[in-house]
């Protein structure tokens, strides 16, 4: 949890008066914040498959390694569901990003 500075004190990287949840990044690939996730849940969209697609969480180069567990935690906390009852979305291949040229033999693997 982020510390809140006293009113009127400027904190680098955080605009005074903003909802602090806007500064908590859940998905680095697509710059999704805690507030983005919670706003969708407040609108009744609580299915991880749906949140994933609307916010493109887990669809960036990291393949969801960071964000998916965080989103599952937020869903569990806000809906009262247990983490183990939330189904993890399918992991897509390739497990690690591969340059297209490597797949057609025109580039060497980095």
């Amino acid at each position: 949890m982020q510390m809140r500075a006293p009113k009127g004190v400027m904190v680098l990287g955080q605009t005074d008066g903003e909802d602090p949840r806007e500064n908590i990044i859940i998905c680095r690939c697509n710059e999704v914040t805690q507030k983005d996730v919670e706003d969708l849940i407040d609108r009744g969209i609580t299915d991880i498959e749906e949140i994933k697609r609307l916010l493109r969480i887990g669809m960036g180069p990291c393949q969801g390694r960071t964000c998916i567990p965080l989103v599952m935690g937020i869903i569990a906390r806000k809906t009262g569901r247990r983490m183990e009852d939330i189904k993890v979305p399918a992991t897509r291949v390739p497990i690690r990003p591969v340059p297209a040229g490597v797949l057609v033999g025109e580039l060497d693997e980095e």
Partner: peptide
């Protein structure tokens, strides 16, 4: 130029 770009998902 897509040669140099990473493939990140297949479905």
């Amino acid at each position: 130029p897509l040669k140099y770009v990473h493939i990140i998902r297949q479905w």
